[in-house]
Amino acid sequence: MHSIYPLVVSLLANVIAQVLKPIVLYMRTQKFDVHQCIASGGFPSSHSSTVTALSISIGLSEGFDSALFAITCVFSFIVVYDAANVRYYAGKNIQLTKQLISDLEEMKGLKFSDPIYQERLKSVLGHKYVEVIGGIVLGAILPLLLYPLFYS
């Protein structure tokens, strides 16, 4: 039972974060969108909660001085950085590109007939820092709460 603790905690952190997204969106906007459960972006970051839960659970089960904990920490830092920066700015680039196409069509009367211009792209790919921090907090709390269930 001990060996599946990091897996269970990490997957549970992911599921909880995804389930919280439409709830948080509703609290902010009074609009409920169940599709947020499978969406990227939003509060809290499921990427951040998953890898943080993995790192903390490995630290608790294998020791915070273990090589495995070091590996998961490095992995976690990469994923969190990607969620907050690379994926976030990729989404911003998509928004800018969509706006430029719209402006060109409107201002110059151009019609872009190539199907590539009609493709629906997700403009929310990454996270704002507060969303990442929310995911980190969720991912840090869950392993601490569940540790006694696996190691009592």
Score class of each variant (00 low, 15 high):
143 P>I: 11
112 F>S: 04
129 Y>H: 05
99 Q>M: 14
116 I>P: 05
124 V>H: 07
50 T>F: 14
137 V>Y: 08
113 S>L: 13
98 K>F: 00
144 L>Y: 04
130 V>T: 13
104 L>C: 05
29 T>D: 07
3 S>D: 14
35 H>G: 15
33 D>Q: 03
96 L>E: 12
121 L>N: 08
14 N>A: 10
102 S>Y: 06
149 L>N: 02
58 I>D: 01
83 A>K: 06
120 R>Y: 10
18 Q>S: 07
33 D>T: 00
57 S>I: 03
147 Y>D: 05
93 N>D: 13
148 P>W: 01
101 I>Q: 12
52 T>L: 13
101 I>M: 07
86 V>H: 05
111 K>N: 13
48 S>T: 08
33 D>E: 12
37 C>M: 15
136 I>K: 07
33 D>A: 01
110 L>M: 11
113 S>E: 15
77 F>R: 00
75 F>M: 13
18 Q>I: 00
23 I>Y: 02
122 K>S: 15
53 A>W: 06
71 I>S: 12
34 V>D: 02
40 S>Y: 02
127 H>G: 02
97 T>Y: 10
108 K>G: 04
54 L>A: 10
138 L>D: 05
55 S>C: 14
56 I>H: 00
40 S>W: 04
47 H>Y: 09
83 A>F: 08
52 T>W: 07
6 P>C: 04
136 I>P: 07
76 S>N: 07
53 A>Q: 07
94 I>L: 06
97 T>G: 01
107 M>Q: 12
117 Y>E: 09
107 M>S: 09
138 L>I: 03
52 T>M: 15
66 S>D: 11
68 L>K: 13
44 P>D: 03
5 Y>L: 06
132 V>E: 01
40 S>E: 08
95 Q>S: 13
144 L>F: 10
149 L>P: 01
149 L>M: 12
41 G>E: 06
70 A>W: 03
82 D>E: 09
70 A>Y: 06
11 L>F: 14
22 P>W: 07
8 V>G: 10
78 I>G: 07
81 Y>D: 05
18 Q>E: 12
59 G>C: 06
47 H>G: 09
128 K>C: 01
89 Y>K: 09
72 T>P: 02
134 G>L: 06
83 A>P: 12
104 L>S: 02
9 V>L: 09
27 M>N: 04
6 P>I: 01
134 G>V: 06
125 L>H: 03
7 L>Q: 04
124 V>N: 10
